[in-house]
Amino acid sequence: MSDEPIKASPETPAATPAPSAPRAEGGSSGGAHRSEGHSGGGGGQRREGFSGGGGGGQRREGGGPGGPGGGGPGGPRRGGKRQYFRKKKVCRFCVERVDFIDYKKVEMLQPFVQDRGKILPRRMTGTCSRHQRWLGEAIKRARNIALLPFATEL
């Protein structure tokens, strides 16, 4: 999914040896992760837990040949080669110099909300903390007056 590149981003420079070691041991040892450092270990572990049962095996196969095109961000992580550089995300509101996020402009809030109505985290949208705060408030106001869903039924 689209959240993989973002989660992987903080550990890209630091945790180069990470993929090989935990890969050999499987998911059994948490100690190896912890010793690698807070940022890298935490992210990696969570990702493995997330894709869990079925995904793990497939991933390893994909990583072997050196990350095929379809694998995208997953490929370079497994293969050990780090040639994939992520573009730094910029807060969209900062670029446009937004000082006030209007809760009535639904089309403006929509990109920051999942289809089911969840507010997207900062690590996915790249919004700065200040704007994320305002955005959350605006989304909650819009939800209250039925402009945005709390969670979609059906």
Binding site: A146, L148, F150, E153
Partner: peptide
């Protein structure tokens, strides 16, 4: 259109 049902209405 309402984003969710409000007193059994889908529109308002």
């Amino acid at each position: 259109r309402l984003a969710y049902r409000v007193s059994k209405h889908r529109e308002g």
